[in-house]
Design a protein around this nucleic acid. Structure first.
Length: 834
RNA sequence: GCCGGUGUGGCGGAAUAGGCAGACGCACGGGACUUAAAAUCCCGCGAUCCUAACAGAUCGUACCGGUUCGACCCCGGUCACCGGCACCA
């Protein structure tokens, strides 16, 4: 055995052995209990960063632990390989996106192998390859067939300088990500998926996900934004159509002093045509339309708008109120019209103040600091009704339903529900994405491509200018085709799909990755799904995790899978941060980023210390869901520990690699007993920490304690060889999920023919954890005063008796009265004295 | 503005069920080994006071208060920082 811990040699050696032995190949063994652990697959940007390493170190610890614990573990990896950076590289450097992407994938695969992660590489899924995109297109057609995919004209983000459409992700603080020009709106016809049909299920099912962080569930809940309210019908003086508003506060109807329409409201044209207000109104609407994204979302939120010369009649009291147009009202939420109640809504208050409109309080909060007849701001939610006719004097909460009902009886209101969630816009005017398999025919409209013609392939003869429409429009061959329905000449959709579609079902393809007749076989998927443990960054809390849930429900509805929720348990890992000195000379901590210069590359760490050290440090330094504060000294510490483990084995290799040492363990001395206790306590703790709450930091610290104990044990009079060997072996298995290479190496050095990955997780011996004597703490008034040792299982009376004899206790209670004595066997005695 | 989270030594963190606060690691200090250094091994390491020393005392988990024999943990309030959403009626 080499004396020095040579991480490079050992890690290379074992990575080769695992590959040669197909160590992590997974079989669809339906008889065995399965465990599916999944890490969010990466975008192939070029190289792994520490965030990736953390993600996969956590996932691999779980996978290896579950495999050792006897589960049939599915632990796959792949690449979310469509996306904008590849196309930008093409525009900038003239490299085809496919070539750029595949070369990045090759690089990252090699880095993943260097980390020694236990993936079944035969199940690799790469979303840009045809064997995946064919089924992506197939699934899109399913959505279309079920009426869940539709095309609609809608405003999109437009960069006037690049002359192109931008995805929301490409709009940074209202500016174009590339040229920094303020982004405006433009109308384009776009494909949508009807995720809003699933709003209630997406919301209600959150309750069925106890294994998800509360935080993520709340974020999704807020994003869906379900609210209960009423639609109330106002009439417009001298106009034959009714104006419907949505409100969550029908109790404030009597406080309505104006009405506001969104600039896009369909009534506006008729209301202003030919009036003296027409010109001003048109100017205001045009201004809104030309407002940049930046101005619209600006922090000042200065209210603008105009009076249009018309009045609405409030159905509750027949009062006439002026109608305005203002862009603080959104056309796509509620009805695009809002009743202005300045006394009880801050935005309405701001508007009324600016335009000199009446402010009528209708709910008196009873707060003596607020003069309701001279409000300085809108008042909060609860109080007694005033200025509200027959409802006066009652609590406002109690009249909400009644007012709606009273109006409903006259056909002027109805209770409704609204959502913030919008349908999912999936069209991207991009080349490097999955083609949308739809064809437009003058006669038949939008029809899906025939299944036998899938996949639609991305053409090679395209020009990447970064301008105008989708690059697919520049292909000579792509656009023109024939209608699958009637055979007439027709044109293909040239937009591609949002890459979030690809990542909404990849976990299913891993289950059956080589299927050539379907996206997956339901029987196989139903065995492996759902994902028992999903691990990734919290930045995907809303979009990816909501879209994947939506896909899950859709596939359930069309009978392809027998579950609704894809991810049973979710772990959102924290960021990797590192301290640096900022421009002001302060030492601060922030997420690793090139611009701050606080990046540590995984390659550099793996070269210097090896994958085992990198993984061990990452798992040890912080609990997985918290931020990880990178520390170069901390990495040294983890490396030192692995060296300590290596030396422990190498020092004893000759004495414990014998038949005698491999024999039965007999506990002889107190030192033996103590080591055996520590060993079993460690196994118990690691089993619970690694298996239950993923608290790898404490699991590793307990292994460190055990190793410290073994070093102390070496100094005891007579070393019990079988015991030491047993302890070393179990320690190696327990450490294996966190540092797989070194533990396999030492296992082999001990003379084993098998591998740790083939072993079973060690069981702990309860009887070894039962101590002969236990320490009891003695408190006076809850403060520690003394400790005594009593036989394990001593009754209360004996413990109290012994505690009474403690010299320190006698001294402390001298001259005082013991009012009460609390005895908790095995733990403590507390004397309450006065 | 709305919603959520966090606050423990010089640092990362531990205390899983209300019962010894600070496990484990880092940094630092001392010692052993060495011609020397590195590596390694051993010891110490919250603050203040006291003692020649051993020992001991008091305070201490952001701040103020409460419940309890006993609170980092539960309850009420305050402050700070971080994250998400945001003109959603």
């Amino acid at each position: 055995m080499q004396e020095r811990y040579d991480h490079k040699r050992i890690e290379k050696k074992w990575q080769k052995i695992w590959a040669d032995e197909d160590a992590f190949k997974t079989f669809d063994d339906f008889e065995k209990e399965k465990y599916y652990v999944l890490e969010m697959f990466p975008y192939p940007s070029g190289k792994l960063h520490m965030g990736h390493v953390r993600n996969y170190a956590i996932g691999d610890a779980v996978a290896r632990f579950k495999k050792l614990s006897g589960f049939n573990v599915l632990h796959p990896m792949g690449f979310d390989a469509f996306g904008l950076p590849a196309e930008n590289a093409a525009i900038k450097n003239g490299i085809h996106p496919a070539i750029w992407t595949e070369s990045n994938i090759a690089e990252m695969e090699s880095q993943l192998r260097d980390l020694g992660l236990s993936y079944d590489w035969e199940r690799e899924v790469v979303t840009c390859r045809e064997d995946y995109s064919i089924w992506m297109q197939w699934l899109f057609i399913k959505f279309f067939e079920k009426g869940l995919a539709y095309k609609k004209d809608n405003p999109v983000n437009w960069c006037p300088s690049c002359q192109t459409v931008l995805a929301n992700e490409q709009v940074v603080d209202g500016h174009c990500e590339r040229c920094k020009t303020p982004v405006t709106k433009k109308h384009l016809s776009q494909w949508y998926l009807k995720i809003t049909d699933y709003a209630d299920r997406l919301l209600d099912n959150l309750a069925k996900l106890p294994g998800w962080p509360e935080k993520v569930k709340l974020m999704q809940q807020n994003w869906i934004g379900k609210s209960h309210g009423s639609e109330v019908t106002f009439t417009i003086e001298g106009f034959d159509k009714d104006l419907v508003v949505y409100t969550t506060r029908p109790d404030t109807l009597f406080g309505t002093t104006f009405m506001v329409l969104a600039p896009e409201h369909p009534f506006i044209e008729e209301l202003i045509a030919g009036t003296e207000y027409e010109e001003a109104a048109r100017a205001s609407i045009a201004e809104c339309a030309h407002k940049s994204e930046l101005e619209r979302t600006s922090l000042t939120k200065e209210k603008t708008g105009v009076f249009i010369g018309k009045y609405a009649i409030n159905p509750i009291n027949d009062k006439k109120v002026p109608i305005f147009i203002a862009d603080y009202v959104m056309i796509d939420y509620g009805t695009g019209a809002v009743m202005g109640v300045p006394a009880h809504d801050q935005r309405d208050f701001d508007y009324a103040t600016k335009f000199g409109l009446d402010i009528i309080p209708v709910v008196d909060t009873g707060d003596p600091d607020i003069d309701i007849n001279n409000l300085k701001a809108a008042t909060p939610a609860e109080g007694i009704m005033v200025n509200s006719g027959k409802y006066n004097g009652r609590n406002n909460k109690d009249v909400i339903d009644e007012i709606t009902q009273d109006l409903a009886d006259r056909g002027l209101a109805k209770a409704t529900t609204n959502y913030k969630l919008r349908d999912w816009l999936i069209s991207r005017q991009r080349y490097w994405g999955c083609p949308i398999p739809m064809i437009y025919c003058e006669d038949c409209g939008w029809v899906p491509e025939k299944l036998e013609n899938l996949p639609i392939r991305l053409p090679k003869d395209v020009v990447f200018t970064g301008k105008g429409e989708s690059p697919l429009t520049t292909s000579k061959y792509f656009m023109h085709t024939t209608c699958p329905c009637c055979g007439k000449p027709a044109t293909r959709e040239t937009d591609t799909m949002d890459t979030f579609l690809d990542s909404s079902w990849y976990h299913l393809r891993y289950c059956d990755p080589q299927n050539v007749t379907a996206p997956f076989d339901s029987k196989i998927v139903n065995y492996w799904m759902n994902v028992d443990q999903y691990i990734g960054g919290v930045e995907h809390a809303i979009m990816h995790l909501m879209y994947a849930r939506f896909f899950g429900m859709f596939l359930y509805d069309i009978g392809m899978v027998d579950y609704e929720e894809p991810y049973q348990n979710l772990l959102t890992q924290g960021m990797v941060i590192k301290g640096y000195t900022n421009a002001d000379g302060e030492y601060v901590k922030a997420k690793m980023s090139k611009s701050l210069g606080n990046v540590v590359s995984p390659e550099e760490i793996m070269d210097k210390y090896g994958a085992d050290t990198a993984r061990l440090f990452i798992l040890f330094a912080a609990p997985p869901e918290k931020e990880l504060d990178w520390s170069d000294e901390g990495v040294e510490g983890s490396y030192r520990f692995l060296n300590r483990v290596y030396r422990l084995v190498s020092e004893y290799i000759n004495s414990i690699r014998t038949d005698e040492a491999a024999g039965e363990v007999v506990i002889r001395s107190d030192a033996d007993k103590s080591l055996n206790y520590q060993l079993n306590a460690t196994i118990k703790k690691v089993s619970e920490d690694a298996g239950g709450r993923f608290s790898f930091n404490t699991a590793i610290s307990s292994i460190m304690e055990l190793v410290n104990e073994m070093y102390k044990y070496k100094q005891s009079a007579s070393v019990n060889q079988p015991l030491l060997r047993d302890a070393i072996e179990k320690m190696l298995i327990a450490l294996n999920p966190f540092a797989p290479h070194i533990t396999e190496e030492l296992w082999a050095e001990l003379g084993h023919e098998d591998r740790i990955y083939q072993c079973s997780w060690p069981q702990y011996d309860e009887s070894a954890l039962v101590l002969d004597e236990v320490e009891i703490i003695i408190q006076i008034n809850g403060r520690l005063k003394d400790k005594i040792v009593v036989p394990n299982g001593s009754p209360k009376e004996l413990i109290e008796e012994r505690a009474n004899h403690s010299e320190k206790v006698i001294e402390a209670i001298a001259g005082k009265t013991v009012v009460k004595t609390i005895v908790i066997p095995g733990k403590l005695v507390n004397f309450v004295v006065k």
